[in-house]
Simulated assay, not measured.
Amino acid sequence: MDAWSSAGVVRRHFGSAVSGSFDQNGRIHQRIRDTLLGFFSGLSDVAVTHAWGGPLGDVEERLTRRPSRISRILERLTAPHSPWHCLLDTARIGAAGHSLGGAAVAELTRLDTRPAAIAVLDGSLFGQVLSTGPELPVLLCGLTPPDPEDPDVLAGWDQLWPLLRGPRHHTTVRGAGHMSATDFDVLAGPLGLRDPDDPDNRFTFGALPPGRGITLVREVLAAFFNEHLMGSPAHIPPEAFPELSLDTIP
């Protein structure tokens, strides 16, 4: 999963939960080409020699920047002159992130003491937090199904788990895919980007109906943050949400 561009300086897919097979998705490439020709019809005779569909950039470098950006946002929101200052309870700040965003909020706990609880939604974990571990409530919510050909999809989770010194929760959403917690899970179908015959769909969307993953993750996040930020433990009825597998260790 550690590839290099032709320039030899930019790593792609490094620890990312994005499958390398996305780079060979001809249907997506054709849609991009069709859109390009819609704007620039004069390019109809121009050959496309290189097609690529994954995230570009050094993940470790991006992870270095993201936590500091989140911290600056918190500073602005909680500053005395902020219009939000009187509306926020700074003792009850929660942070949740999906994919690389999950790695960012985990690393944020090492740099900023304001978050009182965090939730990581799928994706790999990086950074120094894997050596220190946070001392606050943490939810790890897995969406991506196990892939024996790519054991690094959820890299860092097993390493972080024993280092968690606060209440820790591990939830698996059975039948979900990496994007099941996002709007793309619902929008992909109308956009023609959800093909049940495409093997990549299992990784991206799983087998759940569109929107079901969002409902499940919303339920888990609400229960987690209500318990650890509001002091109101919530029971998730298994009969209403059978796709959830909950493993909680106080």
Score class of each variant (00 low, 15 high):
residue 153 V to R: 08
residue 1 M to K: 12
residue 11 R to N: 13
residue 211 G to I: 03
residue 32 I to A: 13
residue 156 G to D: 08
residue 131 S to M: 14
residue 237 P to L: 01
residue 162 P to Q: 12
residue 221 L to N: 03
residue 201 N to P: 07
residue 75 E to A: 05
residue 161 W to R: 02
residue 238 P to I: 02
residue 207 A to M: 13
residue 56 L to T: 02
residue 58 D to A: 03
residue 17 A to W: 09
residue 217 V to C: 00
residue 125 L to I: 06
residue 172 T to D: 09
residue 103 A to F: 03
residue 135 E to F: 08
residue 231 G to R: 14
residue 29 H to F: 15
residue 63 L to Q: 05
residue 122 D to G: 01
residue 75 E to I: 02
residue 233 P to M: 09
residue 14 F to R: 15
residue 82 S to T: 12
residue 52 W to E: 02
residue 81 H to C: 13
residue 181 A to F: 09
residue 5 S to N: 10
residue 104 A to W: 01
residue 158 D to T: 08
residue 70 I to H: 00
residue 16 S to R: 11
residue 202 R to K: 14
residue 234 A to I: 03
residue 128 Q to N: 14
residue 193 L to Q: 11
residue 239 E to N: 13
residue 96 A to Y: 06
residue 14 F to W: 15
residue 65 R to Q: 11
residue 102 G to C: 08
residue 67 P to Q: 01
residue 88 L to H: 07
residue 127 G to L: 03
residue 38 G to D: 12
residue 60 E to S: 05
residue 26 G to K: 12
residue 155 A to Q: 09
residue 139 L to M: 11
residue 3 A to R: 13
residue 104 A to T: 06
residue 124 S to V: 05
residue 85 H to T: 15
residue 194 R to N: 10
residue 86 C to K: 15
residue 44 S to I: 01
residue 222 A to Y: 01
residue 81 H to R: 14
residue 183 D to P: 06
residue 145 P to I: 04
residue 98 H to T: 01
residue 206 G to T: 10
residue 76 R to P: 01
residue 200 D to I: 12
residue 183 D to G: 11
residue 47 A to H: 03
residue 148 P to W: 07
residue 54 G to W: 06
residue 10 V to G: 12
residue 62 R to Y: 14
residue 99 S to E: 06
residue 99 S to A: 05
residue 134 P to V: 13
residue 82 S to Q: 12
